[in-house]
Amino acid sequence: MADMLSLRGVDKVFATGAQALGGLDLDVREGEFLSLLGPSGCGKSTALRMIAGLSQPTRGSMEWRAGRPEIGFVFQDAVLMPWANVFDNVWLPLRLTGQSRAQSAVRIEAALELVGLDGFAKAYPRELSGGMKMRVSIARAMVLRPALLLMDEPFAALDEITRLKLNNDLLRLKQELGATVVFVTHSVFESVYLSSRIAVFSARPGRVVAEIEVDAPLPRDDDFRLTPLYGHACKEASDALHKAMGEA
């Protein structure tokens, strides 16, 4: 797989003097599902924001191989506009590129169907459960059919059952859209289940200290959790994570 994006020797120092990233080397490959795994405060979210263009490196280089692609972003919370219904929330990216409501209707309906929310277009965010809000958020990120989907611990606040369900839906979505996904998480099991590759972060300053390939084809289903390969990968990721946290 070809590299889509290369970060080399990237430092990020905030105005407060806090250093979030130090000497980060990271490649994102075309079509992969890459997880950034690490303890809280290790700069993985900062790295994701940098890829999104919401934050600039203090030092180091960031290069897109074929230009910056269309990017979708999903936050830890659903981050919906509470005053707008589901339809209008998903419309937002299209609206900001100048598409009218009527022009967008078909794509919005398609995006909602993709995340299993057809029939909820008229609902307001507060009428939805946490999992459904996250689905709206994913539909919004998907509606422009981005080549790169960035997700910042999107399922961290959800209950276990909803989370497992959304994990499977996400793998199916990625397959249908053929997008590259970069997924920030602090869960070893989630990262192994979802990813084709895991970059383990160490804190203070944040950098990649280990990379783990998970050699099982995508998409996967719950049976994957019972395979030796899953167990091995979890052990490997867990060890790397402990080492990164200075415990091993």
Binding site: R49, A52, L54, F73, F75, M81, L92, P93, L96, T97
Partner: peptide, 18 residues
């Protein structure tokens, strides 16, 4: 206004007016 939403508007290169 929700800072994450502001980020989202920035991601989609929305003008300050929008």
């Amino acid at each position: 206004a929700d800072h994450n939403l502001i980020d989202l508007f920035e991601l989609y290169k929305a003008s300050r007016w929008k």
